[in-house]
Design a binder for these strands. Sequence first.
DNA 1: TTGAGCCATAGTGCATACAATTAGGCGAAA
DNA 2: TTTCGCCTAATTGTATGCACTATGGCTCAA
Lengths: 235, 235
Amino acid sequence: MGIKVDELSDHADETVEPERRTRADRLAADLADAILSGGFAAGARLDEHGLAERYGVSRTPVREALRQLAATGLIEMRPRRGAFVASITDDALSELFVAMGELEATCARLAALSMNPLERRRLESLHGSMAGMIERGEEEDYAEANRAFHHAIYAGAHNGVLLDIANSLRRRLDPFRQAQFRASGRLEKSHHEHDLVVRAILSGDCAGAHARMLDHVHSVEHAVGQLKTRAAPLR
Amino acid sequence: MGIKVDELSDHADETVEPERRTRADRLAADLADAILSGGFAAGARLDEHGLAERYGVSRTPVREALRQLAATGLIEMRPRRGAFVASITDDALSELFVAMGELEATCARLAALSMNPLERRRLESLHGSMAGMIERGEEEDYAEANRAFHHAIYAGAHNGVLLDIANSLRRRLDPFRQAQFRASGRLEKSHHEHDLVVRAILSGDCAGAHARMLDHVHSVEHAVGQLKTRAAPLR
DNA sequence: TTGAGCCATAGTGCATACAATTAGGCGAAA
DNA sequence: TTTCGCCTAATTGTATGCACTATGGCTCAA
């Protein structure tokens, strides 16, 4: 099941190959990036013909890409009425955070039980390196390391199904998580919460790992909520 | 051309309506049913042209239906090599059960916290009615009620995201769950486990609900495992 | 006889043309 | 003035044709 992982990872590991993946697949990835980075407004209509012209392909791969995205929940398709960027209501966002929290807490619990010594050492080392980033104010690096941190815990659960679910939820929440890093003092608080999670996992305290991770995600949700009261949602 | 509609003739819920859903959507549903009910062997190749001919449509809706199914994990698509019915290895099946167990346990915990009095009463009543089915040996009815029972708990978590995830996992596991009902004494054991879950939920014991549901799913997995050692997997 | 390379064939990826439906605007009637 | 209905334009759903890739069989050489 380890194979499945790098099928999903669409980074530039391919060098010159004259297109291994299909246009539809690459289009889906491109569109997902564009949507998640705010290139399309929430609720915006995704016109097949327009997208086809814009990306220089025919409507067929566009339609297939849209189907893929619809399956992830990133867009919504209504028969004969087209595709729209899924707009997240406050309630839906809250449900997403609750689900994400439960999933992450579950992974943390399983990780406390299943991680092998190497995985535990790597998690500890990654967590340790993040302290320095905070001191040096390296927000970008911290955000990236944060992703790796959470991913390490998903992977530590040793369950491909949960890994896939967690990744897909995280992708949808990432834009919101990103924003809260800019709240003052948030990085320190986040790191402290991580610390509690790591200690619980390393000591094999599965109930503690569950509880601490739940706390952490709730805290992230709270920070996002605070942000939204001041500024408009970021997409 | 819209005349030869009933090649796809499925359920008679639509009376005269000239197609509300698209062909691709109905095809996806039909194919999912066919696969889950064993109409296609595991690992079988799903030839686009053949399916198109068989269902009396062109390749385009077939392709879109296949994309949809691929997103649910029911089939696997490899670029330029076609679609195959996803074959489940023992390891993958085990991972699915673990994930399903964690999801169900999470829903049970949340249900213990969130269910309103009406939902609690309905859950209790449904559970009560299942005892009679066992005594009367109504396996079919019990299987149906069992689905409703678990669904009620997912819904009781009051979280659409978790509900969707649980449903999609359940769909993939249902063929295996069905089989274990035929194991002797399994119905009684299942009902007893349900009883523990219901009591925990009704009394608001969220930790207990989590633990009891985890036990229950593990027990189901064990029963399926027992079955598989004797007979070949059912698809 | 066995292995490697070539070729034919089948099947997917993509493009494009056509059909059908929806939505919005316009006009007529009450 | 308002409302109902029709018509048109825009857009999605479906069909089909072509091109390119992968796979299996066949040939030729060792």
